[in-house]
Nucleic acid binder design. Structure first.
Lengths: 121, 121
DNA sequence: AGAGCATATACGTGTCAAGGTATATACAAG
DNA sequence: CTTGTATATACCTTGACACGTATATGCTCT
């Protein structure tokens, strides 16, 4: 488990990170909101902490976890050359973003419900 | 192998993608430049193609592979909320550092309901 | 048609990580 | 000190996937 990419490959870990982006959370709060067993939460948090994605502070028996920006910035940096690349493909890009906007687990806006046409080229 | 994050978790696949960002390449060219066995290249390319990261065109016996922007754009989209967090984090950190620079470093600020006389040493 | 090159796939193997269950540690309150 | 709560860790099992080797497919050229 070396690279930041392997860390965020795990869906539960991404869910935890997305949860922490709003504010810090205790293990129990994460457990409740994501509905995953407590050992699972703790183990993923350990991986995230060792990899530098989160840090924890002690509050009585609770541990409050919060985000650290650096590792995700590393992902962002890796993505940079590709952003330059897809500037040439803006049209296809926007259609795709519109399509995936309904599968983003973070928040639901509105405006999806389109029975989207099979992207059969 | 569902999510785009699992796809790019593999270092060889990331290398292939980084190679293709400049221009399209044949399998043999990828094989040479990345010094990996040909079946490995083909198998990773297959994964990338099925996941929509690349597409191939036939040129005689060669297959020319080139990038498709959408899946990486999806990663980029997932990263967006965290970018907002980074800016906010830098500001908050600076204000915090500014604040504690004029108070004792061992100070425990507890905003919890219980005034706890055991400040973690 | 046959030889040779370029690419894809099949198969067997080893490794590693995620999940579940149980238990350990730490703190709090009575 | 004992009970209850919050979190961490240990152990085991299972499944996925990456790799290597071997082979298949497909195209070109003579």
């Amino acid at each position: 488990m070396e690279s930041v990419f392997e860390i965020i490959a795990e869906p539960n870990r991404r869910a935890i990170l997305s949860l922490l982006v709003s504010s810090q959370q205790s293990v129990g709060e994460i457990e409740r909101q994501l509905r995953m067993p407590q050992p699972t939460v703790s183990k993923h948090l350990r991986v995230l902490r060792v990899a530098g994605f989160v840090e924890s502070t002690v509050d009585a028996q609770r541990r409050l976890y919060r985000l650290k920006p650096e590792p995700l910035q590393e992902v962002d940096a890796w993505l940079a050359p590709f952003r330059r690349f897809w500037s040439a493909h803006v049209d296809a890009l926007e259609r795709h973003l519109d399509r995936i906007s309904q599968s983003t687990p973070t928040k639901r806006k509105t405006k999806e419900k389109t029975a989207r046409p099979k992207p059969r080229t």
